[in-house]
């Protein structure tokens, strides 16, 4: 969507229609908030600016503070700008046992990025995440919506090196 439309507090027509449809699934439309916020975040460059928070609140007839609170509570919503991709590397026990910490060091060194940070060229934001539910094929990471299991440094490089 264009920056102008975003400034005017409008979501794209398609997104509007999808959210309206989501709202019909519940007796109270507020229940569609979190599923809708995934779509909103995607349309608004991957994060919730003050403006996006205001637009979301307006659409759902809740306070800005409510939306802000939801953004802060859930790890998948971002309160700050992110890179073009989000890389989530699991840090929890099964992945730790299978070498996830060394993989973290590898990513930090090779791509010059800290956990929570974004590469200088804006390609990806790197996050350590708690258990991502692929413990039997640990260690694992999610890149946007794609999953990569039984990771090794070379597997990681094949994926991250191909991001644009």
């Amino acid at each position: 969507m264009s920056a102008k439309a975003a400034r005017e507090g409008k979501f794209s027509k398609e997104l509007h229609a999808t959210i309206e449809d989501l709202m019909t699934r519940y007796p109270q439309k507020k229940a569609a908030l979190i599923p809708a916020m995934h779509l909103i975040q995607k349309e608004r460059e991957g994060w919730f600016s003050r403006e996006t928070i205001r637009d979301t609140a307006e659409l759902f007839a809740v306070s800005d503070a409510h939306v802000q609170g939801v953004v802060g509570f859930y790890d998948m919503f971002h309160a700050d700008p992110v890179g073009r991709h989000v890389v989530r590397l699991c840090k929890t026990l099964s992945c730790m046992l299978r070498g996830a910490d060394a993989l973290k060091d590898h990513i930090c060194e090779k791509y010059d990025v800290e956990p929570g940070g974004t590469t200088d060229d804006g390609t990806f934001t790197f996050k350590r995440f708690e258990c991502l539910g692929h413990c039997t094929t640990a260690p694992m990471m999610l890149v946007d919506e794609e999953k990569y299991e039984e990771l090794t440094p070379s597997k990681i490089d094949a994926v991250l090196g191909g991001l644009s």
């Binding site: 699934r25 229940a31 979190i34 599923p35 859930y74 790890d75 919503f77």
Partner: peptide, 12 residues
């Protein structure tokens, strides 16, 4: 009966 998928957003 309706069945809907509802997605969370990352909170154990």
């Amino acid at each position: 009966c309706d069945v809907w998928v509802h997605s969370g957003a990352g909170a154990y």
